[in-house]
Each structure stands twice: as C-alpha cells, then as structure tokens.
Amino acid sequence: MDQKDFKIIIKDIEVRLYRVARRILISHEEAQDSVQEIVIKIWERKEIIAQAKNIEAYAITMIKNHCLDRLKSKQANFVRLEDQFADQEDSLEETLTAQNTVEERILRVEQVINRLTEKQRTIWQLRDVEGYSFEEIEAIMDMNATAVRVTLSRARKEIRNQIAKQYE
C-alpha cells in the first residue's frame, strides 16, 4: 500500500473514527487527538493492515480500544466524567414541549446518549449511527452476539425512558 492508496482509505474512514471517538470520550478535542494518533499507527502498520479483510473494522477496533484506555486512565486519575455533565444535568431537569426547536431536541438526545455507560453508548453509536451489522459489532467490541444485543437493547430502552420522561 503506497501513500496514495492509504490516503484514499483513511479519508473514507476517519470521519467514522472521529464520531466513535467523540461518542466514547465525549470531547471534540480528545476525539481529534485520538484520530490523529490512530491514523499514524495505522500508517506504521500499513503492511499488516493491508492484509486484513476489513480495514475499516480493524481501524474502528483500534480507535475503540484506544479511547476506552484513555477513558480508563482518566478515571484512574480521578477525573470524574460526571463533572463534565454538571451543566447538562441542570438542563435535563427542564421539560420538553412541542414549542422546543429541533436543535433543542437534538441537544437533549445527545445529552441522554452521552450519559449511557461507555459500552452502551459505543454499541449504540456503532449500530444506530454507523450502521454496522451485529457480526461486525461483535468483532469490534470482542463480545458475543447475546451480550451485544442485550447491551444495545438496554441502551435503547434507557434512551426512550429518559426522553419520554422529559415530555411527561
């Protein structure tokens, strides 16, 4: 794989890498850093990766592992993720009405999803936004079929409960 081929492949997948990273880390800046680190890693391993059946799944797995590790070390350093949501929690107390704009509703949904556990929001992202098959998600997450479906189902139900609650 020469640099030209590499550019084409990466161009197609780096937006997905960014979205998955942002979903896990809930931070635009950290997601950007992570994508850059992973793109460089992929370039360094391009010979091995060129032989992989599914380069995209390989790259997504790399970014998922990278971001989960980053999250773990952050938690180990006592940076409580919940602190980032302090402002959001307040706004969640407000109720939604038909008068709310589409942008406001989109923001609410984003807040609800970002408050799921990291596994739930990663799997939700992979399926509902990136549109991966269950087989692909099992491989990326290194989880069995039942575990993936159970986690996804819990994530979706939690999203429904939280949004519905705001309309009560």
């Binding site: 989109i106 949904v109 509902d128 999203i159 429904r160 949004i163 309309y167």
Partner: peptide, 12 residues
C-alpha cells in the same frame, strides 16, 4: 407517546 422515537431518529 412516539415523541421520544421521533427525537431519537431525527438525532440519528
């Protein structure tokens, strides 16, 4: 009762 689904799919 379907508002939640509308919001979620619009967000998606």
């Amino acid at each position: 009762k379907l508002y939640w689904a509308r919001d979620l799919f619009v967000y998606r």
